[in-house]
Amino acid sequence: MVTRARSVRKVNTVAATTSAPPTRASTPPARRRGRSPYPGWFYLPAAIVYGLLFLIPTLLSLYFSMTRWTIFTSEFTGFDNFVQFFSEPALTKGFVNTFVYAAITSGAKVVLGLALGMLLTSQIVGRGFLRAVVFFPVLVSSVGVGITFQVLMNPSKGAVNAALGVIGIDGPGWLTDPSLALFSVAMVDVWKGVGLATLIYMAGIVSIPKEYYEAAKVDGAGSWTLFRDVVFPLSWPATSTVVTLSLIGGLRSFDLIWAMTKGGPGFTSDVIASVIYKQYQAGFYGLSTAGNVILFVAVIAVVLPLTRLLARKEVEL
C-alpha cells in the first residue's frame, strides 16, 4: 500500500509539472524587430531643401570668397580678399560699426521694452490703444521708415530741428554729422523695433503667477523690490529672446541704414552689409563675398556663445 501511494504521488507530481504553463524564464526570448527606416524618409524633403538653399550656397560662398571672380571666370587667390578686407580702413570701419550698432540697438530695446512692457501690463487708462501705438512701427516697412526720418532729420528743413528751434535749441545735422549719423540711425531702429520687444516682455510678465506678487506684497516688498526679485528674474526668458533677436537683427542690419544715409557721410555709418553692397556695386565680387563670409562668422561667433550663456543664466534663476 505504501509503495502504491508513493507511485500515485509521483504520477501526480509529474502531471502537475507537465501541465503547468511555462514560466517567463523557460520561454525563448522574442526576436527584436529591426527599427524600420520608414519614418526617416519624411526628413528627406526638408534635408533636400536645406541642402539646396543653405548648405550648397554656404560652401560655394566660402569658395568664391577665396577667388577673384566674375560671372563667367574665377581665379583662386586664397585669403587675399580677407586680408584686403581688414587692411582697408573704410572696410574695417564698417566691421567695427556693425558691433557698435548691434550693441546700441539691442541694449536700448531691452531697457525700453522691459519698461514699456511693465507699463502696458499695469492698470492704466487707454492701455489697449497704447499697445497698438507702440507696436505699429513694427508693421511699417524699414525703407519707408528710413525715407520718412531722412526728411524729418534734415538739418535745415526737418521737423525735428524745427521743433528744437521753437524752444531755442539749434539742432545738429543728425545724418550729416559724422559723429552722429550712426547713432541717429540706431535710435530710429530702436523706435521701429521696440514694439516687438515690448510684446515679448508683455507675454513674459503676464505669464508670471499672481501668487509671487501676493507673497512679495505680504512680505512688505515695494515697487523696486517687486521688480528686482519677482518681475526681472521670472521674465528672464523674455530678456534672452529680446537680446538674441535684437543682436541678430543689429548685426545683419542694412535696409534702414541704406535708406537713411547709404553709409555716409563718407564711411562713418557703414556696416558690414552696406560695405558688401557697395563692393558688389563696384564689381569687386570676390571681396564682397568675403564680406558675406565674415558677416556669417561674426553672427555665429556672437550669437551661439551668448545663447548658451543666457540659457545657463535662465536655469540658474
Rank of each mutant, 00 (worst) to 15 (best):
R131E: 06
R4A: 15
L226N: 14
V100L: 12
I169W: 08
T77F: 00
G158P: 08
S106I: 03
R312S: 09
G266Y: 01
S7E: 15
A16Y: 05
P39V: 09
Q279L: 12
G171V: 08
M202D: 09
D255E: 07
T225D: 10
S184L: 10
S179K: 04
F82H: 02
R131K: 14
I272D: 01
G171I: 05
G250E: 00
T27F: 10
W236E: 05
I104S: 00
F183V: 15
S274I: 10
G51T: 15
M1L: 14
P237T: 07
G128M: 14
A90S: 13
I167N: 10
T92V: 03
F149A: 04
L234R: 09
P39Q: 11
T239A: 09
T3W: 14
L60G: 05
S19C: 10
G94S: 06
S7D: 15
S74N: 13
G168H: 08
A290E: 02
P305S: 12
I124D: 06
Y50W: 14
R35F: 15
L309N: 02
S142N: 07
V271M: 10
T261K: 09
V218K: 08
V100G: 02
L310D: 13
L53E: 11
I71D: 04
G193E: 12
Y43K: 01
D189K: 07
R68N: 08
V299C: 01
A298H: 01
M260N: 09
A259P: 06
M187R: 03
G173L: 04
V133I: 14
A197P: 11
W69T: 02
A311V: 02
A103H: 00
L251D: 03
V275A: 06
A259H: 02
K157Q: 15
T18R: 14
G78F: 01
G171A: 12
G40N: 13
M118S: 13
R228I: 04
W236D: 00
